[in-house]
Design a protein around this nucleic acid. Structure first.
Lengths: 192, 192
DNA sequence: CCTACCGATCGGTAGG
DNA sequence: CCTACCGATCGGTAGG
């Protein structure tokens, strides 16, 4: 499954033969097909595994980020870091979103939406307490932040060179967090 | 070429057979291979066409946006609108970035980077004139905006359902422009 | 988990 | 731009 995840993320589902997965694991193709009855079953299992992982990890990430004084500050960085730490999964989910929008939509709506929904609640809370900008659309905002995080990680190796010299990855991540933060919090004096 | 662009964007390069392209055009496979000596040649031609189109259109888009008083205001919306208006091309470039990072990097660095570089110059100009935030990293900022635009369009049909109810596309685009704007301009009173 | 094997489709060529 | 055809690889099965 790990091998399949890597190959699917790297070359795409259609660009990956079950033979190549079997090779990576060191078994014969029919042996692989014993564990996963078809290539599509393998795909489904890989996607399930990905979502199960996120479903397991997200609560603690969000819990850790939404506790204490700087819960809003922390939440943004936590969400961004979460995707940044898993470039393979980010690329895989980006591919699945393009390859099978319907499947990905259902899977995400079922497993992930509840947790992002939690974040929008926090945002609304912050808006009422006057710490967050009122012009933020909570649902659209969190969607944009996640899209940016996935996009930056999945396409990062190329977007770096959008500019002549190229903006190195660490600076891209810093700027991403800055953008997410500034567009959420009410402006205040300086920070550092 | 249009047929190939659509199919590549939709199902990916590996997921598209030259037979299916030929079918879409209404000719036989060998006839297609007469015009494009190999599948890879077709891919290269499609990518070239995409970049040529952007190279042709970008100047006028940027020129129109960077003239007059509200040149900064306009530039953001122009860049975002530019990608939003071409969902097929956005999806294709996103795929090519993942499938062949090296090829995409070279192509973008050569054809697109000069124009985005122009935007970073404008941003620096705006920073000096005091209208734009000083904490903006121009290179990283424009990279992030483009990534967000491409990502939103390419993955949009799925990210909409990141939230239970789902944030409709128009609202996502509005929020994207807001995020890009707020994180670039110095804060000021209300707008509307 | 393996060997042996299958029909279908793949990208591509010959030759007109 | 076509018909006819090629070897290689595809996902998958039989049977042990």
């Amino acid at each position: 499954m790990n091998a399949a995840t890597l190959l699917f993320a790297d070359r795409g589902f259609e660009g990956t033969s079950i033979q190549s997965v079997a090779d990576a694991v060191g078994i014969r193709k029919p042996s692989l097909l014993y564990h996963f009855p078809s290539k599509d079953a393998l795909r489904a299992a890989v996607l399930d595994d990905l979502l199960a992982h996120w479903k397991r990890e997200l609560p603690s990430v969000l819990a850790g980020a939404t506790t204490g004084k700087d819960r809003f500050e922390g939440a943004i960085k936590a969400i961004v870091d979460f995707f940044v730490a898993q470039p393979v999964r980010a690329r895989l989910i980006a591919r699945e979103m393009m390859d099978q929008p319907d499947v990905a939509r259902r899977a995400i709506a079922e497993h992930i939406a509840p947790w992002t929904g939690l974040v929008t609640d926090y945002i609304r809370l912050g808006q009422e307490s006057g710490r967050l900008r009122e012009d933020v659309d909570p649902e659209a905002y969190i969607t944009q932040v996640v899209t940016l995080a996935i996009g930056t990680v999945a396409l990062g190796s190329v977007t770096q060179s959008l500019i002549g010299s190229g903006a190195p990855m660490p600076q891209q991540l810093e700027e991403m967090v800055r953008i997410a933060r500034v567009s959420l919090f009410k402006s205040r004096p300086k920070e550092s």
